[in-house]
Design a protein around this nucleic acid. Sequence first.
DNA 1: CTGGATCCCTCATGATACTG
DNA 2: CAGTATCATGAGGGATCCAG
Lengths: 132, 132
Amino acid sequence: MSLSRAKLTSNFPGCPVEATLSFLDGKWKGVILFHLMGGTLRFNELRRKLPSVTQRMLTKQLRELEESGLVSRTVFPVVPPRVDYALTPLGLTLRPVIEALAAWGEENVSCLPEGRYLGEVSDVSVTAAIKA
Amino acid sequence: MSLSRAKLTSNFPGCPVEATLSFLDGKWKGVILFHLMGGTLRFNELRRKLPSVTQRMLTKQLRELEESGLVSRTVFPVVPPRVDYALTPLGLTLRPVIEALAAWGEENVSCLPEGRYLGEVSDVSVTAAIKA
DNA sequence: CTGGATCCCTCATGATACTG
DNA sequence: CAGTATCATGAGGGATCCAG
């Protein structure tokens, strides 16, 4: 992991950036939040949005986000099981942050919303990825 | 670790957030960029701003930022040695992102506002002060 | 469908010492 | 001052199987 686990009680001696990033720590939190900005999602819906994350990690990251108070988890006692994930009010306040991250990525990494790439991305890996 | 090392060869299937975050990956990149937003800094100046990062790590993160094209490294062939670190034009485009991160941190994590950062105080005394 | 439980292993980070 | 060079570590993350 990168930053200390997100705790509001943690000691971040003077760096608000570090504090915020600690909430996004972990390999997938940012992306999860990004997708949840679009509204509530079920577990498998999230899985489909994150093609390359394992089930285990998705669960783990979601639990951590829940613990941080950014994401709410609602279990419906039905068969088959259903669990909804949504942003909490606190999570929603991250919208400007996520949007800034998304905007920069779109402008500088040539990452199309549809998943296509332009520019600097290595032809090799892209080609390989597409072939796969 | 959080995200895959910032390499444009990575596969970011449609998530600009993940792409951006990959540039901030590592324990200290965000904070380094944050401080460099204030202008060029020498190596030891940065060290003083990041009380808890080891020399080795600071060097490493700076090198990675340089490789990502976000930070420039200027060596002056003088004695004693002098090396300046500054944001590149690309690095400067991250300002909105860093500012969003900082703003959120200031609002949601108890952190001193407006330029005053406890970072300059040693961890020991900060911890002691909080305990008190 | 939504996870929990295990095993395993890489790698990012840390501590320390040395150098031009 | 601004780094390298080594060595050690442990937690993050992947794979797989099991369960209500």
